[in-house]
Simulated scan of single mutants.
Amino acid sequence: MSVRQIILLRHAHAEPPAAGQSDESRPLTEGGVCEAHSAADWLKAHGAEPDIVLCSPSARTLETAKCAIEKLGHAPGIMVDKRIYEATPGDLIQVLEEQAEADCILLVGHNPGLETLVALLTDGTSDQGRGMPPGAIAWMHVDGDAPIEPGSASLRHFWWP
């Protein structure tokens, strides 16, 4: 049986909003750029080869995603999906299920949705989140034929800068 890989990457540290600035337009801090590069290095060192990169439309997630695909050495392209911004775990599951043909998905998004999704998929509950600091990676495996649902994934790696 094949295994699907789901790699969740939380955006790195972002600037606080300036007066009149939208939350979506906040860029990474200088330290956040370093975190994004560290996450990209870690993904490359562990052989990540996403077929697709799904990303929230926010500036900070797009910057983080671009760092990742630049370092990985292949560019599957970034698919921006507005549903990832402020997503619930249910929203994220729907986004992931729509990419069922992909063997490896890299999804770049936000908390609390990502940490709750990890807990839901691995433990079957949404109240056991371990937290996902900025720049953190949760790499999960799901049996290729299984739907993405509570308790269906195994956590293979959890890393943060």
Rank of each mutant, 00 (worst) to 15 (best):
G20L: 02
Q128D: 07
T88Y: 04
R26L: 04
A36I: 13
K82A: 15
A136C: 01
W139F: 10
E49A: 15
H37S: 06
I78L: 12
C34A: 12
L107T: 08
M79L: 13
V53E: 01
V3A: 09
F158H: 13
M79C: 09
G47P: 12
A40C: 09
L72D: 13
D103H: 12
H110L: 03
E97S: 13
A87Q: 11
P161Y: 06
K82C: 12
L28K: 02
R130T: 01
I6T: 07
H74E: 05
D81K: 10
H157L: 11
A138P: 12
L117N: 10
D81H: 09
K44H: 14
L72K: 00
A146E: 12
A87K: 09
M1K: 07
W42V: 15
I137P: 02
E15Q: 10
E63I: 00
P147H: 13
L9E: 02
S126K: 08
R83P: 08
L9Q: 01
L155D: 05
G135L: 02
S152I: 14
L120R: 15
I6H: 15
F158Y: 15
H141P: 13
S126A: 12
D145P: 01
A48S: 09
W160C: 14
E101G: 05
R156F: 01
A136M: 00
S25H: 14
S126V: 12
V3G: 08
D145Y: 02
G144I: 07
A102Y: 06
H11I: 00
A65G: 08
I69N: 02
G77Q: 07
D41M: 11
T29L: 01
L92M: 02
G47W: 04
V108K: 02
K66H: 09
A146I: 12
V108D: 00
H141E: 14
S38H: 13
G144R: 09
C67N: 04
E86W: 07
W139S: 09
S38W: 06
A153I: 07
P50E: 08
A45V: 10
S152G: 11
C104Q: 13
L72H: 06
A40W: 02
A87N: 11
V108M: 04
H74S: 07
P112V: 14
V53Q: 03
S126D: 14
L28S: 04
D91L: 04
